[in-house]
Protein backbone atom coordinates (compact mmCIF):
# COMPACT_ATOMS: atom_id res chain seq x y z
CA UNK A 1 0.00 0.00 0.00
CA UNK A 2 2.93 2.25 0.69
CA UNK A 3 4.25 1.52 -2.79
CA UNK A 4 0.94 2.18 -4.40
CA UNK A 5 0.48 5.44 -2.57
CA UNK A 6 3.97 6.47 -3.63
CA UNK A 7 3.40 5.50 -7.23
CA UNK A 8 -0.06 6.86 -7.53
CA UNK A 9 0.89 10.02 -5.73
CA UNK A 10 -2.61 11.11 -4.81
CA UNK A 11 -2.21 10.02 -1.32
CA UNK A 12 -1.51 12.49 1.35
CA UNK A 13 0.00 11.04 4.47
CA UNK A 14 -2.07 8.38 6.12
CA UNK A 15 -4.40 7.72 3.22
CA UNK A 16 -4.57 4.02 2.61
CA UNK A 17 -7.48 3.70 0.25
CA UNK A 18 -7.72 3.90 -3.49
CA UNK A 19 -10.54 5.96 -4.99
CA UNK A 20 -12.28 3.31 -7.04
CA UNK A 21 -15.36 5.49 -6.97
CA UNK A 22 -13.57 8.12 -9.04
CA UNK A 23 -12.78 5.50 -11.64
CA UNK A 24 -16.40 4.50 -12.02
CA UNK A 25 -17.47 8.11 -12.07
CA UNK A 26 -14.89 9.03 -14.72
CA UNK A 27 -15.83 6.04 -16.84
CA UNK A 28 -19.54 6.75 -16.69
CA UNK A 29 -19.14 10.48 -17.25
CA UNK A 30 -16.86 9.88 -20.21
CA UNK A 31 -19.28 7.44 -21.81
CA UNK A 32 -22.16 9.83 -21.21
CA UNK A 33 -20.11 12.69 -22.66
CA UNK A 34 -19.24 10.54 -25.67
CA UNK A 35 -22.88 9.68 -26.27
CA UNK A 36 -24.11 13.26 -25.80
CA UNK A 37 -21.45 14.75 -28.02
CA UNK A 38 -22.10 12.16 -30.69
CA UNK A 39 -25.76 13.04 -30.66
CA UNK A 40 -25.55 16.82 -30.31
CA UNK A 41 -22.21 17.85 -31.76
CA UNK A 42 -20.17 15.36 -33.76
CA UNK A 43 -23.11 13.79 -35.51
CA UNK A 44 -24.54 17.01 -36.93
CA UNK A 45 -21.06 18.33 -37.68
CA UNK A 46 -20.08 15.21 -39.60
CA UNK A 47 -23.44 15.36 -41.31
CA UNK A 48 -22.83 18.87 -42.54
CA UNK A 49 -19.32 17.91 -43.63
CA UNK A 50 -20.72 15.05 -45.63
CA UNK A 51 -23.38 17.31 -47.04
CA UNK A 52 -20.75 19.84 -48.04
CA UNK A 53 -18.67 17.11 -49.60
CA UNK A 54 -21.63 16.01 -51.68
CA UNK A 55 -22.47 19.59 -52.50
CA UNK A 56 -18.94 20.24 -53.74
CA UNK A 57 -18.93 17.03 -55.73
CA UNK A 58 -22.25 17.98 -57.29
CA UNK A 59 -21.03 21.47 -58.05
CA UNK A 60 -17.91 20.12 -59.69
CA UNK A 61 -19.98 17.74 -61.78
CA UNK A 62 -22.37 20.52 -62.73
CA UNK A 63 -19.48 22.80 -63.64
CA UNK A 64 -17.94 20.07 -65.75
CA UNK A 65 -21.25 19.45 -67.47
CA UNK A 66 -21.88 23.10 -68.19
CA UNK A 67 -18.34 23.44 -69.46
CA UNK A 68 -18.93 20.61 -71.90
CA UNK A 69 -22.25 22.08 -72.91
CA UNK A 70 -20.69 25.49 -73.45
CA UNK A 71 -18.00 23.88 -75.56
CA UNK A 72 -20.63 22.10 -77.61
CA UNK A 73 -22.63 25.27 -78.05
CA UNK A 74 -19.54 27.19 -79.04
CA UNK A 75 -18.71 24.56 -81.65
CA UNK A 76 -22.27 24.70 -82.90
CA UNK A 77 -22.23 28.48 -83.10
CA UNK A 78 -18.91 28.40 -84.87
CA UNK A 79 -20.28 25.96 -87.42
CA UNK A 80 -23.38 28.07 -87.89
CA UNK A 81 -21.27 31.16 -88.40
CA UNK A 82 -19.12 29.39 -90.94
CA UNK A 83 -22.20 28.14 -92.73
CA UNK A 84 -23.72 31.58 -92.75
CA UNK A 85 -20.51 33.06 -94.10
CA UNK A 86 -20.36 30.46 -96.83
CA UNK A 87 -23.95 31.07 -97.71
CA UNK A 88 -23.40 34.82 -97.88
CA UNK A 89 -20.37 34.26 -100.08
CA UNK A 90 -22.32 32.05 -102.45
CA UNK A 91 -25.21 34.53 -102.51
CA UNK A 92 -22.85 37.35 -103.46
CA UNK A 93 -21.23 35.14 -106.06
CA UNK A 94 -24.60 34.21 -107.51
CA UNK A 95 -25.73 37.80 -107.59
CA UNK A 96 -22.56 38.83 -109.34
CA UNK A 97 -22.98 36.08 -111.91
CA UNK A 98 -26.60 37.00 -112.38
CA UNK A 99 -25.61 40.63 -112.81
CA UNK A 100 -22.99 39.72 -115.40
CA UNK A 101 -25.46 37.68 -117.37
CA UNK A 102 -28.03 40.42 -117.21
CA UNK A 103 -25.50 42.99 -118.35
CA UNK A 104 -24.49 40.84 -121.29
CA UNK A 105 -28.12 40.40 -122.17
CA UNK A 106 -28.88 44.09 -121.94
CA UNK A 107 -25.86 44.97 -123.99
CA UNK A 108 -26.76 42.38 -126.59
CA UNK A 109 -30.33 43.59 -126.78
CA UNK A 110 -29.21 47.17 -127.07
CA UNK A 111 -26.71 46.28 -129.74
CA UNK A 112 -29.39 44.38 -131.71
CA UNK A 113 -31.79 47.24 -131.36
CA UNK A 114 -29.19 49.70 -132.62
CA UNK A 115 -28.39 47.44 -135.56
CA UNK A 116 -32.03 47.17 -136.38
CA UNK A 117 -32.51 50.92 -136.17
CA UNK A 118 -29.47 51.46 -138.34
CA UNK A 119 -30.80 49.03 -140.95
CA UNK A 120 -34.20 50.69 -140.91
CA UNK A 121 -32.60 54.08 -141.26
CA UNK A 122 -30.50 52.85 -144.16
CA UNK A 123 -33.53 51.41 -145.89
CA UNK A 124 -35.37 54.64 -145.28
CA UNK A 125 -32.50 56.64 -146.65
CA UNK A 126 -32.38 54.42 -149.72
CA UNK A 127 -36.08 54.78 -150.26
CA UNK A 128 -35.89 58.51 -149.84
CA UNK A 129 -32.99 58.64 -152.29
CA UNK A 130 -34.93 56.59 -154.83
CA UNK A 131 -37.89 58.82 -154.32
CA UNK A 132 -35.78 61.93 -154.70
CA UNK A 133 -34.06 60.59 -157.80
CA UNK A 134 -37.46 59.69 -159.22
CA UNK A 135 -38.74 63.14 -158.46
CA UNK A 136 -35.68 64.77 -159.99
CA UNK A 137 -35.97 62.60 -162.99
CA UNK A 138 -39.59 63.57 -163.41
CA UNK A 139 -38.64 67.16 -162.90
CA UNK A 140 -35.89 66.86 -165.49
CA UNK A 141 -38.21 65.23 -167.97
CA UNK A 142 -40.73 67.88 -167.35
CA UNK A 143 -38.15 70.62 -167.78
CA UNK A 144 -36.80 68.96 -170.85
CA UNK A 145 -40.21 68.86 -172.33
CA UNK A 146 -40.62 72.48 -171.36
CA UNK A 147 -37.27 73.41 -172.87
CA UNK A 148 -38.01 71.34 -175.88
CA UNK A 149 -41.32 72.97 -176.43
CA UNK A 150 -39.69 76.33 -176.04
CA UNK A 151 -36.97 75.38 -178.49
CA UNK A 152 -39.50 73.97 -180.83
CA UNK A 153 -41.44 77.14 -180.63
CA UNK A 154 -38.43 78.78 -182.07
CA UNK A 155 -37.22 78.18 -185.66
CA UNK A 156 -36.34 74.76 -186.13
CA UNK A 157 -34.54 73.62 -189.15
CA UNK A 158 -34.99 70.25 -190.52
CA UNK A 159 -31.54 69.29 -189.69
CA UNK A 160 -31.83 70.59 -186.19
CA UNK A 161 -35.04 68.73 -185.78
CA UNK A 162 -33.49 65.53 -186.88
CA UNK A 163 -30.54 66.03 -184.71
CA UNK A 164 -32.69 66.79 -181.77
CA UNK A 165 -34.86 63.75 -182.26
CA UNK A 166 -31.88 61.55 -182.58
CA UNK A 167 -30.34 62.98 -179.48
CA UNK A 168 -33.44 62.33 -177.58
CA UNK A 169 -33.73 58.85 -178.83
CA UNK A 170 -30.13 58.22 -177.93
CA UNK A 171 -30.51 59.78 -174.63
CA UNK A 172 -33.60 57.84 -173.93
CA UNK A 173 -31.86 54.72 -174.96
CA UNK A 174 -29.01 55.43 -172.58
CA UNK A 175 -31.34 56.15 -169.77
CA UNK A 176 -33.22 52.98 -170.21
Amino acid sequence: MLLSSLVLGTAAEGVTHINYGDMFFQLIVFIVLLALLKKFAWGPLMGILKQREEHIANEINAAEESRLEAKKLLEEQRNLLKEARNEAQSLIENARKQGDIQREEIIATARGEAERLKEAAKVEIEQQKEKAVGAIREQVAHLSVLIASKVIEKNLSAEDQDKLINDYIKEAGELQ
Binding site: T10, H17, I18, N19, Y20, G21, D22, F24, F25, Q26, V29, F30, V32, L33, L36, L37, F40, A41, W42
Partner: peptide, 25 residues
Protein backbone atom coordinates in the same frame (compact mmCIF):
# COMPACT_ATOMS: atom_id res chain seq x y z
CA UNK B 1 -21.62 2.56 -0.96
CA UNK B 2 -18.34 1.10 0.18
CA UNK B 3 -16.35 3.00 -2.47
CA UNK B 4 -13.98 5.86 -1.83
CA UNK B 5 -14.63 9.02 -3.79
CA UNK B 6 -12.57 12.17 -4.15
CA UNK B 7 -15.13 14.99 -4.27
CA UNK B 8 -12.63 17.26 -6.03
CA UNK B 9 -12.25 14.71 -8.81
CA UNK B 10 -16.01 14.40 -9.16
CA UNK B 11 -16.29 18.16 -9.38
CA UNK B 12 -13.50 18.60 -11.89
CA UNK B 13 -14.58 15.68 -14.08
CA UNK B 14 -18.02 17.19 -14.23
CA UNK B 15 -16.69 20.68 -14.94
CA UNK B 16 -14.38 19.44 -17.70
CA UNK B 17 -17.12 17.36 -19.30
CA UNK B 18 -19.53 20.26 -19.10
CA UNK B 19 -17.07 22.66 -20.72
CA UNK B 20 -16.33 20.23 -23.54
CA UNK B 21 -20.02 19.61 -24.04
CA UNK B 22 -20.88 23.31 -24.07
CA UNK B 23 -18.06 24.22 -26.45
CA UNK B 24 -19.01 21.44 -28.84
CA UNK B 25 -22.72 22.10 -28.69
Amino acid sequence: LGLWFNAANLLMITVASLIVFLIAV
